[in-house]
Design a protein around this nucleic acid. Structure first.
Lengths: 201, 201, 201, 201
DNA sequence: AATGAATGAGTATTCATTCAT
DNA sequence: GATGAATGAATACTCATTCAT
């Protein structure tokens, strides 16, 4: 890895590269974005890129890690003060949807990453962390009787899948409908908690 | 479009190309698979490819359409005899999961397709058809009181997202766990119908 | 060379190929016309082409020879009964212009041929024959005093160049003006005989 | 269009590419010259070509424009001080023949260009400018009685055709005779002014 | 730190020609 | 005579990466 001591100006440059790259990767995909695109957009020579990053792959990797970390932090900040496991799940869902709504480029980035052998492991790993986290709350809920019995991992995956699909469909870069859907988070919560049935027999 | 009179031998060749291409696209992605790979795998010259297909893109497109059509047919066959809307939803879920379990390459293909501007519209379109179909049953269920009130489209997207996420996680080409999960379909059904709560307050 | 005994049907086929090829070469040039184009236009398989012709090059060659021969015959028929050398030159010009006006595809063919190393020799050779022929009349005219002294070859080339340039400009495939110019031949004659001056000092 | 800031070294390279390309296009034609040929001749990688030019077509186009411009400038420089219309025509002919004699590659380039749909328009356009220019002098000559009455455009085309045919025949890359013909220009002038007749009846 | 220049392996696609039937 | 299938060398162009200055 390139580890350089960066001057203040250098750090700024590096940030600019990351910022531009996120936008371009989100818009055009990984293969669709060339190192040249990134440099041209910034109006700098190619040398700049390779001064700050080892390779295109390394840049993408770092970007992805960074984004997944932000997501994670947002989720944790949202639930740390919440006592009841079901409420924690609810708040986690709301926080995640809010996060993705505010940064649609990250939705596209994650989606892109999932496609490439080189990066899908990172995404999967990120998912596993989230799933494990949700599963904790699920198990707690089961223990106290508020959540039905079942495989906690599968349930957690259900929640994650629902949320991410909503997000992709309604916020993704190529989402057709960009209309404001304030009730989206509430529907996601309701779906994950109650499913679709009106009653429980 | 290349429309040729194909002899029996020709049709067979064409099928071989489609078959090999599906496998390679699923394993290596769209950009990761070259026309040369396809031809080499079949042990034929490059001309063969272009004898049967207009371009790499056209081949992928055809493959994708074909797969989405098969999925659709499988779903419809599964529910056409079923009377109750909730049962139709259940059977649709089971059929979909079964279909993807049997053809993991198709999971990867759809996922790949969703990534590329050129093909994502096809995937989205396929999803819309499925969502519209599920929404029909959801509305019917709402009318008779068996399904809770809410936005039928969002609910349908919830179902679709859950199912496809399960499928990707447990059957996808780069799924880490390929262990047999017979109860997967049942969990998916349960999650979509009941969510995670043990009771309805 | 492929020399086959052709049945009546076979000869007809061969003619069809030549006819279609002339049209396509004239429209699309040599490289722009593929053997496949020719076969597709005729609605036959590629084998047909190679049954009648050795190669694409051989076909073009034959076509060109044939066209140059026709031109030559037309010119000779026009002057054989004419007595005076200047009148022979005049009639040759009129006949040539008429010939090319009636078969613009041949103009394009000759022009195309002139471009390719492989065929330009044929064109040059054809030109030389025509030039030699004109030069005969020029010399005769010089001898009797009706034509000014000068290099007969250069003069003949002047005539040929003028005529062919007119033809290319006004009848060529990509001639912009396809308007009818009945006085074209007369202008060509006048230009070649008198140049542009109003008087001879 | 590729518009780059070029260093001195870069500009030099660009010139080298143009120079080599002119030679190769003249010798081998457009399709006969590959981008690889150009790069190999220069002893550089393929990327160099695409660093300086958008495409093979763009390069050829630029080369052609450039050559036609040079021709035009040469002609204008030759006549700008000349008063009488006939003398202007004479000097224009001499200058053109001199220009092409000194740069036979340009003869071949123009000829090649005329063959391709993509470039023939440029050539035709160049011709039109020249024809319009000559026509000005012709009209002037008609007005003062030194030039016979007739269609000025046709006459101008006659001059252009004669000159270019001479040039092609005696200077073109595949001209068989490269012998020195100092009287060529004078014959061209004479032919255009007087035609072939010894007297005017 | 930064730039413009250069590299060269890799990619989709074309097409004259041959072959098996 | 004729067809559809197959070949494979050739071509324009791309792009991650490196280099000289």
């Amino acid at each position: 890895m390139v580890t350089r001591k960066l001057t203040k100006r250098g750090s700024k440059r590096r940030e600019q590269v990351l910022e531009v790259a996120l936008r371009l990767f989100a818009d055009q995909g990984y293969h669709g974005t060339t190192v040249g695109d990134v440099c041209d957009t910034l109006g700098v020579g190619k040398g700049v890129f390779y001064w700050y990053f080892e390779s295109k792959e390394a840049l993408f990797s770092e970007l992805l890690r960074e984004c997944l970390l932000q997501l994670r932090r947002t989720q944790q900040a949202a639930i740390e003060q919440v006592g009841h496991p079901i409420a924690r799940i609810e708040e986690g869902i709301r926080a995640s949807i809010g996060f993705f709504r505010d940064t649609p480029a990250i939705v596209a980035l994650i989606r892109t990453a999932a496609r490439y052998e080189e990066f899908s492991a990172l995404v999967t790993h990120g998912q596993e962390i989230v799933v494990a986290d949700i599963a904790t709350h699920v198990k707690e809920g089961m223990a106290e009787g508020s959540i039905r019995h079942g495989d906690p991992d599968l349930m957690s995956h259900g929640i994650l899948g629902t949320v991410f699909h909503f997000v992709e469909t309604y916020f993704g870069t190529n989402a057709e409908t960009t209309e404001f859907r304030p009730q989206l988070a509430e529907e996601a919560v309701a779906f994950c908690l109650h499913g679709v049935l009106a009653y429980r027999p």
